[in-house]
Amino acid sequence: MSKLFKNQPKTLQKKLSIRHYVQFFFFALIGLIAINHTLVETGAGIPFLSDASLHALCPFGGVVTLYNLATLGTFIQKIHMSSSILMILIFILAILVGPVFCSFVCPLGSFQEFLGKIGKTLFKKRYNHFIPQKVHDVLKYLRYVVLILVVYVTAKSGYLMFADIDPYNALFSFWSDEVSVKALIVLGITAILSLFVERPWCKYACPYGALLGLSNKVRIFKIKRVEATCVSCNKCTTVCPMNIDVANKTTVTDLQCISCMACTSEESCPVPETVTLTLEPLNIKKPVSANLNQ
């Protein structure tokens, strides 16, 4: 076992980036709030810490309750105003810098990423490359099917039916009798797959990730690659957890991008200021003078 850790790849030896600290922070925060929620129900509780339910702190709850909010003026069961507020804040962030929620905040994403470190140690370069690119290119749209299904079913039923298979819910309430066996199974499968594929839930099943992914088409700050200085080392493509071929793009608009910054010159690109998160210049066409004269 000790040999395993001695031979760990550079990815594990690397100094933790600020993104990892933010991930740890949110993971610990949500975990403590979930524990506090249970403690409060038993009469105890951690002082000065929120005891909100997991659903109240999930921005996707704000999305699935939109139909009920618009038609009945109420939230679906277990969802509250906080979910809608978080949904708006995350949308603002997504419009500015993309699905940064997935890479910096989401505890389920962090959980998969932490497990992925073990997968990288075990499988080295083969890790995250078990699924052929062609299969991946089809499977990545599966989460849009999940998104449509979840929003439709929730709107029709008025219940948070997705909660029964929600691995995020299971992750922070596995000790509670409120968690369903199905959710625990989904979490278990996600955990096992994380040893082979980076962020399997995010890539192929997460409905919220699917929705936030759309922001990659319109976000203000985008991941850009400067062709003039690029040395075509392919490092940016290799390190991308979402299997995006960054090396062959000048601007990353792929729906799968989670703005993790792994491909940037700050993290892996060997040439400074070559792959960066930069402001997308507004593409305003000059009015045709003839039209003005009309």
């Binding site: 993104r19 933010v22 804040l89 962030l93 810098v97 940064v100 910096f104 905040v105 910054m261």
Partner: peptide
């Protein structure tokens, strides 16, 4: 990016 994320949330 981290500060922006924390600040907005």
């Amino acid at each position: 990016l981290a500060l922006l994320t924390l600040g907005i949330i």
